[in-house]
Design a binder for these strands. Structure first.
Lengths: 162, 162
DNA sequence: AAAATATGTCAGTCATGTTGACATATAATA
DNA sequence: TATTATATGTCAACATGACTGACATATTTT
């Protein structure tokens, strides 16, 4: 593909849109589906996976910050988080500066679960990126970053990657 | 990023995995959420959007092919497809070679809906890809392609892009 | 002392996926 | 031709993970 494709030709805009949308849909679906079997053993769903993934990415995150990160309601988070807390996959620590806050961390048990659930995904992603090469991987990240709403970037990427 | 990152260093594997997973999650979420407001006006959801998108990508697709493409059950598709048929966003034509088959196409009304729903997404994707550049966009497609299960590629990418 | 904030919970709803069972029309095969 | 297989559609029940709205408690800020 040459740079002429980005010269305001609507046909190429259409191709970029259709091809990207299709690939993004299938890739996301096939990537996200992997951990399901492992999760089923624990009687957990994808929502539990997301929570332990992001708590691991942001140790000591508060409930409100996690809500902003995931962009879901308190009531929706409550169900999965309560279970993860009850079953000791996540620990809560009362904030020292602000005792209203509950700071979340994975327990050893939670880390083990995340490791098990991540195994296949990690293989799949590392394989895809290494086969595609480092230039392609940088491009992959670049386009994905630009797809994220600026408004959400504040709550998200700042916490881990710039 | 240099090629040394793909030399079997587990720390870099970990980075590739975590960064890619996080970016893919946020990008997909922020990309897919866009059409919701438009869809709400029609009283449709994301499932309806997917159906009209893929019927448009594969004109004359049969129900069984659409099921294989979307990887969902007949019963799940039935609800949304019935509505789209009832309200004349999609037309059914009995197959000529095999009269059991129902070949699906968008009606003019369906094309109008898809256009309205696509408007924001198209802007968002074209903006992201053109800002990232053609090399990055190629890399984006390359990694996404490699994330798709080989088994699914038969049902999917073959139909539109190789 | 009053207002705002962080968290948690109860109750109900919705969208979209799943299984399992069964019916009908048509095509392919023995 | 009779039987079997395929393509489609539909009924019922259920699971997951979102949502809204209301309300309670503890703590911090004003």
């Amino acid at each position: 593909m040459t740079d002429i494709f980005f010269d305001n030709h609507n046909l190429n805009d259409e191709k970029v849109f259709l091809k990207s949308t299709e690939l993004l849909y299938f890739a996301y679906r096939d990537y996200i589906a992997w951990p399901d079997e492992v999760l089923k053993k624990y009687n957990f769903g994808r929502a539990h996976h997301r929570v332990i993934f992001f708590v691991n990415q942001n140790p000591g995150i508060s409930v409100a910050e996690l809500l902003a990160l995931l962009n879901i309601t308190k009531q929706s988070l409550s169900r999965v988080l309560s279970t993860l807390l009850d079953k000791r996959f996540i620990s809560q620590k009362i904030g020292t500066r602000d005792r209203r806050k509950r700071l979340l961390n994975l327990t050893a048990k939670g880390e083990k679960l995340l490791f098990d659930v991540s195994e296949c995904q990690k293989l799949q992603m590392v394989k895809a990126c290494s086969e595609a090469g480092s230039v392609a991987t940088e491009g992959f990240w670049k386009v994905l970053s630009k797809l994220i709403n600026e408004k959400n970037k504040k709550d998200t990427i700042n916490l881990t990657y710039k």
